[in-house]
Amino acid sequence: MQSKNKGEISFINKVRIRFVETDPLGIVWHGNYIQYFEDGREAFGRHHGISYLDQKEYGYATPIVKSSSEHKFPLRYGDVATIKTIYVDSLAAKMIFKYEIFNQEDVLVCTGETVQVFVDKIGEGDLSLTIPDFFKDWKQKVGLLNE
């Protein structure tokens, strides 16, 4: 499922909370929410044609340089969580994603954000200060650029 507002594109996927992701009380350990963000990015990328494998094909990697999360309510073993991943458009050579995670009662349990930059995998892993052509093409394809 996807939605689109001006300057942003989103995708919604679900994950079942596994036993290994919880503490002895059956509550999801806070560090696992970063993995749920990655699950959301992976699903977003596959759906919208900008996955890590797509980026690698063009000779780039996009390491995370910033991440944050705010926890409101716990998820528990056996819950089915809904992850809404939102791409926020930027003029800079980076990818910004925001996340909203909901429990099965549709209560917002966590929000977060990650920022990724482009590094050249063909050369020395140099930081790209300009938006790579393949990413400009993708932005135009999904309606974020009118050029």
Rank of each mutant, 00 (worst) to 15 (best):
I86N: 03
K84E: 11
K98A: 10
W29D: 11
F73R: 13
Y87P: 05
A61C: 02
F102L: 09
D23K: 10
L53Y: 01
V20C: 14
T111E: 13
I34Y: 10
G112R: 08
L127E: 04
G123S: 14
V117A: 01
G31C: 10
G49L: 07
D39M: 12
V28P: 05
Q104W: 03
Q35T: 15
I64L: 14
Q35N: 15
W29P: 01
K94G: 00
E70V: 14
S90P: 07
V119T: 12
A93Y: 00
P132I: 02
D79K: 01
G45L: 02
P63E: 02
G112M: 05
T114V: 10
V115M: 08
V65R: 09
F97C: 08
V119H: 02
Q116P: 03
R76G: 03
F97K: 04
V28N: 07
D120N: 15
S69G: 13
L25W: 01
I17E: 06
R46K: 15
R76A: 09
T114M: 04
Q35A: 14
K66M: 08
D89C: 07
A43G: 03
Y36P: 02
I101V: 15
E42T: 14
T130A: 08
I122C: 06
G78K: 06
L53A: 13
G45Q: 07
G31L: 10
T85Q: 04
T82C: 04
E21Q: 13
R18F: 12
F97G: 05
D79F: 06
Q104Y: 00
G123P: 12
G78D: 14
Q104F: 08
G59C: 06
I86D: 03
V117D: 02
R16Q: 12
A81W: 02
D79P: 08
T111Y: 08
T22G: 05
G49K: 10
A92K: 15
T22C: 14
K84F: 02
L53T: 11
T82I: 09
L53Q: 09
F73T: 07
Q55M: 15
E70R: 15
R18Y: 10
I122M: 12
S68E: 13
G45V: 04
S67M: 13
